[in-house]
Design a protein around this nucleic acid. Structure first.
Length: 310
DNA sequence: GTCCAGGAGA
DNA sequence: TCTCCTGGAC
């Protein structure tokens, strides 16, 4: 089984991904953090190369300001990842621990990321379980209970080629053993798979319902600057956000956004004086500031609308 | 328009 | 168990 899996991987695996072309533990660590809850396509083209260019080593990152790190992370979401990344760099200086247990003591590194770093950077014999691999394992062993997944994954781990084995299962999950229409015909390990007759019975993803929510934002513009405040809540912590206002009888525009469990209906209202606790941010240099997508969306909408009014 | 994928921390 | 985010697929 190990042999055909690796043969399939050599032929069909996503070997071109930039973080698979390096042995540098920092580059692998960075990729794993960026890939948490985030699609490959969003990371590989823009955020990953941009971030590495600015901070090529853990040591370089350790010298950074949180502002700059968050600015580079703008638009990627889950900003605690960026704050934790910087924390790790400051804690570790220039060397990350090499054991999963030690890595997991660091902020932002859980079971998955700790195992991924050890398997992918050091070829250690640890089973990596992300949601793709979890689905593969649950189908392969026809598991109903996800508690057994880590143990089963460790059981079938190829200890001679742990890195390739884990990457192979990952690619199998994302290319063939997909949530909706698994391509069992093409699967190299189909003959050993206990769940192949009813793949949809195993490894189901849980459904999410969203709540509707209305938020009113205030727009204050002054000679090419916009008033923004720093979030001090967990949501968008330390990022610049548009000031919220209580009510908006006469909004000049609206837009939609969503996060977590909320569908946001946002309104924009022109303010005639700058709200307290706001900073005037130059519109030309917005990309140098930590601004989340929801705020950027609002700002673009506001500018477009106001220009059309002229 | 609605749905979906994707780990950590508290 | 709940919060944290986003854009692209449909």
């Amino acid at each position: 089984m190990h042999k055909v899996l690796l043969e399939w991987f050599e032929k069909h695996g996503r070997h071109e991904l930039p973080w698979r072309q390096t042995q540098d533990v920092y580059k692998i660590y960075l990729s794993e953090i960026m890939l948490q809850q985030t699609q490959v396509s969003r990371v590989e083209g823009e955020y990953y190369p941009k971030f590495l260019k600015r901070f090529p080593t853990l040591k370089a990152l350790a010298q950074a300001s949180e502002n700059e790190v968050l600015a580079l992370w703008s638009g990627l979401g889950y900003y605690s990842r960026a704050r934790n990344l910087l924390q790790c760099a400051k804690i570790c200086k220039d060397t990350l621990p090499k054991e999963p247990k030690e890595l997991m003591k660091l902020p932002g590194i859980g079971t998955y990321t700790a195992n991924a770093i050890c398997a992918f950077a050091y070829n250690q014999p640890v089973a990596v379980v992300d949601t793709n691999i979890k689905r593969v394992i649950m189908r392969f062993f026809a598991l109903q209970d996800e508690k057994e997944v880590q143990q089963k994954a460790q059981m079938i781990l190829n200890t001679n080629e742990p890195k390739k084995h884990n990457l192979a299962l990952m690619d199998l999950g994302s290319l063939l053993c997909t949530p909706k229409n698994p391509l069992c015909d093409q699967c190299p390990i189909q003959q050993w798979c206990a769940g192949k007759e009813s793949p949809h019975s195993f490894g189901k993803t849980k459904k999410t319902k969203r709540e509707e929510k209305v938020i009113h934002f205030g727009i204050f513009l002054q000679s090419g600057h916009i008033a923004m405040e720093r979030s001090n809540k967990n949501l968008y912590k330390n990022m610049f956000i548009l000031p919220a206002i209580e009510s908006a009888p006469k909004p000049f525009a609206t837009f939609k956004h969503s996060y977590t469990k909320y569908n946001i209906q946002a309104t924009l209202t022109l303010l005639n004086k700058r709200p307290p606790n706001t900073h005037l941010i130059p519109l030309q240099a917005l990309s140098a500031y930590p601004v989340a997508s929801i705020a950027l969306k609002g700002i673009k909408k506001a500018i477009k609308h106001l220009q059309e009014d002229l």
